[in-house]
């Protein structure tokens, strides 16, 4: 565990608390894309199936369980929110899910000569979760561009997700250099994902930071 990975994880954790705070204290899910949240839940469930077969550390176990539970709760709250206007949550998610699944079937870390079929299916689902996470923010980004009244907390939520991605890139540079750790699937998808946030940070700068003191 290096400092970049830890800061990235804490920023990811903070993003959950920001979103939960928005949902609980404003009692409104306006501006929150149910599609993005459902994609994140899919990502965590597919990636953390290894909870059942591998133990890395208590830190990893608890974070994984929290990510699954929190995203499931967020999906539940947003889906059942009566005041949510989903009119602008119009992204066609099949254009994200299907290509991610097809790509995962062909580009993955399976070793069919070693482990059983279940471990290899987990490898395919792991790759799927990596590809899907890279693009899962797109429905939320589309909403932010369409809505004028996005609350600052939703923007801070997105910013903390972007910081999480940026620090994971630094973490991979560090781990490649000092540990020889190298997962090309995660790194390439991670770079794509971080680039998508560059678009968001321009919006963040224009709509939040430039507007702060009036």
């Amino acid at each position: 565990m290096n400092i970049f990975r830890f800061v990235g994880d804490m920023s990811h954790l903070a993003s959950f608390f920001l979103l939960l705070a928005k949902l609980i204290y404003t009692k409104s899910s306006t501006g929150v894309s149910l599609k993005t949240q459902a994609l994140y839940l899919t990502v965590f469930v597919c990636r953390y199936l290894d909870l059942l077969v591998a133990f890395v550390s208590w830190y990893n176990e608890l974070m994984k369980i929290f990510f699954i539970a929190a995203s499931a709760y967020i999906v539940y709250v947003v889906a059942t929110s009566t005041r949510n206007s989903n009119a602008s949550d119009t992204y066609r998610v099949e254009f994200l899910v299907i290509p991610a699944l097809v790509l995962a079937c062909f580009v993955n870390e399976t070793h069919w000569s070693k482990g059983g079929w279940s471990l290899n299916v987990m490898e395919i689902l792991w790759a799927f979760s990596i590809y899907l996470e890279a693009v899962a923010v797109l429905p939320q980004l589309k909403m932010l561009h369409q809505l004028e009244d996005t609350t600052n907390i939703t923007m801070h939520y997105m910013a903390s997700l972007g910081i999480y991605r940026a620090f994971y890139l630094l973490n991979w540079v560090y781990r490649l250099y000092y540990e020889g750790y190298w997962h090309p699937i995660a790194v390439v998808a991670g770079i794509v994902q971080t680039l998508l946030y560059a678009d968001f940070f321009i919006l963040y700068y224009q709509s939040v930071l430039l507007r702060l003191p009036s």
């Binding site: 990975r5 994880d9 990811h12 290894d50 077969v53 591998a54 133990f55 890395v56 550390s57 990893n60 974070m63 994984k64 990510f67 070693k114 482990g115 471990l119 987990m122 490898e123 792991w126 994971y168 973490n171 750790y181 997962h183 995660a186």
Partner: peptide, 10 residues
Amino acid sequence: DAFGDSKDEL
């Protein structure tokens, strides 16, 4: 490596 041995990130 079995799944999980080298996948220690979130």
